[in-house]
């Protein structure tokens, strides 16, 4: 039982670490590139406007998608690694 508990703890720590990495990217691409850092990126031209506009109206959504599937893929690995997967 105690090994189960420690593996559950380690699994949770690994999960929280993965979430933190994903959410940092999530925030940097949307709030960062799309809004706050947009003036700094204004020199980079994308199709008649700047990179920040692209992130705000298209890029951030693509990043969100990649992040969710990356997370789902990594979690399937973690589930097996720590033997907490279903069936």
């Amino acid at each position: 039982m105690s090994t189960q508990d420690t593996s559950g703890m380690a699994y949770w720590k690994a999960n929280v670490r993965l979430i933190t990495i994903c959410l940092v990217i999530w925030a940097v691409c949307s709030y960062g590139f799309g809004i706050i850092l947009r003036p700094m990126l204004s020199g980079i031209a994308v199709g008649g406007t700047d990179l920040g506009f692209w992130f705000a109206q298209q890029g951030s959504m693509i990043v969100f998608l990649v992040l969710i599937f990356f997370y789902a893929y990594k979690m399937n690995q973690l589930d097996r690694q720590f033997d907490v997967h279903e069936d």
Binding site: I19, L23, W26, I35, A56, Q57, M61, F64, Y71, A72
Partner: peptide, 21 residues
Amino acid sequence: GYDASLFLMGWTGGYVLLAML
């Protein structure tokens, strides 16, 4: 224009939170 980007990001970014949190 650009200011309405907040609807695009706001109504999609929540799914990242849903999937992870």
